[in-house]
Structures are given as structure tokens and as C-alpha cells.
Amino acid sequence: MPPTLVNVAVGILLGVALLGAAFDRHSIAIVAAVAGIPDLDAVISLVVPGATNAALHTLFIPAIAAALLYYDTEHRADSWLRRRYGWYGVRVAWVAIAAYAVAGIGLDLFNIESAAALYPVSDRYYSIVGRFILSTQEGVIQTYIEVADGWLKVASPGTTETHHVNTWINPTPGTGNPAGVERNIRIVDSGWQFVLVVTAVAAVPAKYLIERGDV
């Protein structure tokens, strides 16, 4: 899975793009933090076997949060969130949910190490990887999702019982977490990830300057 720093960077870029008038130090910090929350299921894996990329990577979390937020802000006569934080809180909440789903879960789901996106209904990891090509001879070629026996099919490396996602918190399968095992804290794994992080770092002050009218 991409390093947590990369998830946070994508969350920051989403915040810069979507927060609009709600953009400030507090809102961008909230969105960035939320983007990194799913990776905390590596800590849960010390107690619950196979929880990494599963317990907090389930799409049910942002789906339920979005449903509750929509109900509170659109169907309740007196919205709790709007009454307490106004339009600002509503905007930040929606962007935070987007960051959780796209930056927190999406980057891992579209990765070879996969995510159990339907956990706990299904304990299977899904990995949406492939390529999308426009060929002058073969036309459109995409290998992310295939159709087999009338069903959409995506790659799966296994289930929470058979597939282990290695992290520095829990590098070995199970909950034993033995001492002396090599642990690697991944900062960035590739050039494109480094560019993404640098872009996110530069985007925040650039957004401030634009909002102030200095550029």
C-alpha cells in the first residue's frame, strides 16, 4: 500500500481543491488527518488478525458517514452540525468524507497490496490494478475490471485469513508481533509519490497566497 504520507498528501490536494471558502489551517489539518486515519487499522491488527487494510478501509465507513451527514443537513429541521459550526462545518465534513474515501481507501484499493473494501460483510481483499490504453490497432484496452461469466471481476490476493499486508507496526502475520523482526517505515516508495508529496506541500501556501490576492 502507499505510505501514509502519500495518503495525507492526496488528502491535502483534495482539501485545496474542494474546501473553497472554508479553506484555512484548521480545515486543511482536519482533511489531512482524516486521509491518514484508515492506515490506523494496522494498530488494530495487533489485536484482530487480518485487520490491516480491512477494519478501517471498508467503504461502509464513509458511506455511513455520508448518509448521516446528508440526513442531518438536508432532512432535519434543525441540523446539529449546521447549528454548531455553520456552513463551514458542513463543507469541511463533506470534504473530509471525500478524503477518507478517495485518499484513505482509494489509493490502497487501487494498489497491488489491496484493501478489504467490503469488510466485515466480506473478508476478501480487492486489488484494482491494470492499465488503460488507446491502441491504433486494438482500440480501447483496459485490464482493471474484467467480465467473467457475466460478472465483473477484479484481482484479489486473498482474504484476511490468507493475505497479510506488511506494515512497520505489524510486519508479520497474526497478532504475535515478535521482537527482532525487521521493520521498515516507508516514507515514499517511488518518484511519482515524491512529486505528489512535494506538490501537496507547495499547494497549501500557494492556496493562501491566491486567497489573499497576492498572486
Score class of each variant (00 low, 15 high):
Ala96Asp: 08
Trp80Thr: 09
Arg131Cys: 01
Ala115Trp: 01
Glu74Met: 11
Leu81Asp: 07
Val95Leu: 07
Ile133His: 15
Tyr70Val: 09
Ala98Val: 14
Ser79Lys: 05
Ala98Gln: 11
Ala66Leu: 10
Val90Asn: 03
Trp80Ala: 08
Arg76Gly: 02
Ile141Arg: 13
Glu138Pro: 03
Gly86Trp: 14
Leu109Ile: 02
Ser135Val: 09
Arg131Ala: 15
Leu152Phe: 15
Val140His: 08
Val102Met: 05
Ile141Asp: 03
Phe132Trp: 14
Asn111His: 15
Gly158Tyr: 13
Leu68Cys: 14
Asp149Gln: 11
Asp108Tyr: 02
Ala67Ile: 11
Phe132Asp: 10
Gln137Met: 10
Ile112Ala: 14
Leu109Glu: 00
Val129Cys: 04
Gln142Tyr: 10
Leu107Gln: 00
Asp78Arg: 15
Gln142Asn: 06
Val92Asp: 01
Ile133Ser: 02
Ala103Gln: 00
Gln137Ala: 06
Thr73Asp: 06
Gly158His: 09
Ile133Gln: 10
Ala93Lys: 02
Ser127Met: 05
His75Gly: 02
Ile128Val: 15
Ser114Arg: 06
Thr73Val: 15
Ser79Phe: 11
Val129His: 06
Leu81Lys: 04
Ile105Asp: 00
Val140Arg: 08
Trp80Asp: 04
Tyr85Gln: 05
Tyr85Asp: 00
Thr159Pro: 13
Leu107Tyr: 01
Arg131Ile: 12
Arg76Pro: 01
Gly130Met: 03
Gly89Trp: 06
Leu134Thr: 13
Glu74Gly: 09
Trp87Ser: 13
Val154Pro: 09
Leu109Tyr: 05
Tyr119Trp: 15
Trp94Phe: 11
Gly139Asn: 10
Tyr119Pro: 04
Ser127Thr: 12
Trp80Gly: 02
Pro157Tyr: 11
Gly150Ile: 08
Leu152Lys: 12
Phe132Cys: 05
Ser127Asn: 05
Ala67His: 11
Ala96Pro: 08
Arg124Val: 12
Ile141Tyr: 04
Val147Asp: 03
Pro120Gly: 04
Arg82Cys: 03
Pro120Trp: 10
Ser79His: 07
Ile97Glu: 05
Ser127Lys: 04
Ala98Trp: 15
Ile105Thr: 02
Ala77Trp: 13
Leu134Cys: 09
Val121Pro: 08
